[in-house]
Amino acid sequence: MLHHPTLDRLNAMGLAGMARAFDELTANPDAEGLSHPEWLALLLDREWSFRHDRKLAARLRFAKLRHQAAPEDVDYRSSRKLDRGLFARLIAGDWITAHDNLVICGPTGVGKSWLACALGHKACRDDRSVLYQRVPKLFSTLALARGDGRHARFLAKLGSVQLLILDDWGLEPLDAKARHDLLEILEERYGRRSTIITSQLPISSWHEVIGDPTYADAILDRLVHNAHRLDLDGDSMRRARTQPQA
């Protein structure tokens, strides 16, 4: 068998996963008993896995999730009033297909950001585009983008991802430009994309954070009315964990 020329051709065609599998199989004496269809099936399976893993890694790099969280690692034993049935449905992802939103509220340290990132990780695994943003930094970045010509492009990026995670909402009141930017983002996403927002404040306090009543009504209408809600409570999980979950 022309081992090296075959490897060269596979790599030249961009079939890196298949090339690795071919190299391993030819070096494995046990593979001699495989039929041609079994060989082909193994090669194709490795190529598919290689491409899937590479695409997932790219999606996770783009998402910039704050925590390396996964649904399989969620702690349901802690007393933070996490609705296990609802969270299982959120993991399934049908709400993203339906372009619904998710609001996660609760005191600091109960795992709001961690849970949001776990759902973001699952969405990446489901081949969806995800982007994580801390709200205070987001509005600072948008303000800077106005001055260097990136503002429209950045707004388009925020509007186009299939799942946008807005973390730490409500830490400080919005100014006029931040209100306008937030409404533009949500208007672009409403009924087309899904958004997760985490906050220490209950929804009843969000009008005060937004400031302008007209903007507040418009923003909450686009964000909350089609949103699932996780209302968490309890002591900070940071006190009991080496790895923070908030």
Rank of each mutant, 00 (worst) to 15 (best):
T108H: 08
T108M: 14
T108D: 04
V110W: 13
V110S: 07
V110A: 10
G111A: 12
K112R: 08
K112M: 10
K112L: 09
S113M: 14
S113Q: 13
S113I: 14
W114A: 00
W114T: 00
L115T: 12
L115E: 11
A116Y: 06
A116N: 05
C117L: 11
C117Y: 13
C117N: 09
L119T: 10
G120Y: 06
G120T: 05
G120A: 03
K122T: 01
K122R: 14
A123H: 08
A123R: 08
C124N: 05
C124I: 09
C124A: 15
C124T: 09
R125I: 03
D126I: 07
D127R: 12
D127S: 15
D127T: 09
R128D: 04
R128C: 10
S129P: 01
V130Y: 03
V130A: 01
V130D: 02
V130F: 00
L131A: 06
L131N: 03
Y132E: 05
Q133K: 15
Q133M: 15
R134L: 07
R134H: 12
P136A: 12
K137T: 09
K137L: 14
L138V: 07
L138M: 14
F139Y: 08
S140A: 14
S140F: 02
S140M: 07
L142K: 06
L142M: 10
A143W: 00
A143R: 08
L144I: 02
L144N: 07
L144G: 03
A145L: 09
A145V: 06
R146Q: 11
G147Q: 14
G147L: 14
D148R: 13
D148P: 05
G149Q: 12
H151M: 06
H151D: 03
A152Y: 03
R153V: 08
R153F: 11
F154P: 00
L155D: 10
A156L: 02
A156K: 07
A156C: 00
L158F: 05
L158H: 03
L158D: 06
L158M: 05
S160P: 10
V161N: 13
Q162P: 01
Q162L: 02
Q162G: 06
L164F: 12
L164C: 08
L166Q: 01
L166F: 01
L166H: 04
D167K: 03
D167W: 09
D167A: 02
D168H: 11
D168T: 06
G170T: 07
L171H: 04
L171S: 09
L171A: 08
E172W: 01
E172V: 05
E172D: 12
E172Y: 07
E172S: 15
E172P: 02
P173D: 14
P173W: 13
P173N: 11
D175Q: 04
D175G: 06
A176I: 04
A176E: 08
K177T: 11
R179K: 14
H180M: 07
H180Y: 10
H180I: 00
H180P: 00
D181E: 08
L182T: 11
L182E: 10
L182N: 07
L183A: 09
E184K: 06
E184S: 06
L186K: 03
L186A: 05
L186N: 02
E187A: 12
E187P: 00
E188D: 12
E188C: 06
E188P: 00
E188N: 12
E188L: 13
R189P: 00
R189M: 04
R189L: 05
Y190R: 11
Y190F: 15
